[in-house]
Write a protein that binds this DNA or RNA. Structure first.
Lengths: 151, 151
DNA sequence: TATCAATTATTGATGCATCAATTATTTGAA
DNA sequence: TTCAAATAATTGATGCATCAATAATTGATA
């Protein structure tokens, strides 16, 4: 309350907002943000290897494998290997599923629109810049700036 | 890539940044942001009931219970009941642990400082306002704005 | 006073992400 | 050619958060 700097508030608020955002998103769309991102990436790319997908959605390879196995079991996607490389697995949406996912794409757009209601385009640009700046800053933080002596 | 609106980018970036932030924080401080928030709250409040603490740190009561049990087992905190209400459990730091946590408080401050390096005070204020606005917007989103017909 | 509702904490089941270890395959260099 | 290193995916162990159900206690009321 008292000595709580603006920086600290932002730090906490960032996490709080993100949590609310993901939670509400999931209850609205019926799937986690990760799951939805995977599906929307597939909607826009026809065919992709797991490792490429993993880099795009930025979650752990193990998590990707588990998502895709579930989606395959549900009949949403197909997975297959190609002759030239038996290591890589390729993924694509079932035709059947595309329509349903197109609809959820609309819902996501609407959700995102609501989320940033009342922001001017200028503010949005600035928001994005700030987030990117934080990202750069964080990536430059190194462990040994802290704790110092390993007493 | 192509039809990717600024709003959508922010939406994704917000989650990405938060993930990096928490991950780096944990590797620097050696404990999750939740855990550290709990400890720092206790450092500043001497004694608190679990339910009050739970509201402060904004995580599920079940998660709080589990954190506190671990901290108790580690000898970092004590938990006890009071005569006037046998339901509530009160929590306080062990004297022994306070010094160590004070140090981690410094580390957290340093981390937060690094995170927002290069931001002017004005920008910080604006950042906070934006986050708050998003929070308000999200809280107003209702499930039935979406999907519409439950076909 | 007996009972019902609210409060508080806990537990169990579940979901999702991470890391580390493992397996299979491919590539490249000696 | 052969073998080591790189690449890709998977599995198991673990951590942490959530929800739902349960237990214990307290307060209110009829």
């Amino acid at each position: 309350m008292t000595a709580c700097s603006v920086r600290l508030q932002i730090f906490l608020q960032l996490q709080a907002v993100n949590k609310e955002l993901c939670s509400k998103f999931e209850s609205c769309l019926g799937a986690s943000t990760s799951r939805v991102e995977i599906l929307h990436y597939l909607l826009q790319h026809e065919e992709v290897s797991q490792s490429a997908l993993q880099k795009e959605v930025n979650i752990d390879a193990a998590a990707v494998t588990r998502h895709l196995k579930q989606l395959e079991a549900a009949g949403t996607i197909v997975r297959y290997k190609k002759a030239d490389d038996q290591r890589a697995t390729w993924v694509k949406l079932e035709e059947e599923a595309k329509r349903h996912i197109e609809q959820s794409y609309q819902e996501k757009s609407q959700f995102v629109k609501e989320t940033f209601a009342g922001f001017s385009e200028e503010e949005l640009e600035q928001f994005l810049k700030m987030l990117s700046k934080v990202s750069v800053n964080v990536s430059h933080v190194t462990k040994n700036q802290f704790g110092g002596e390993t007493k």
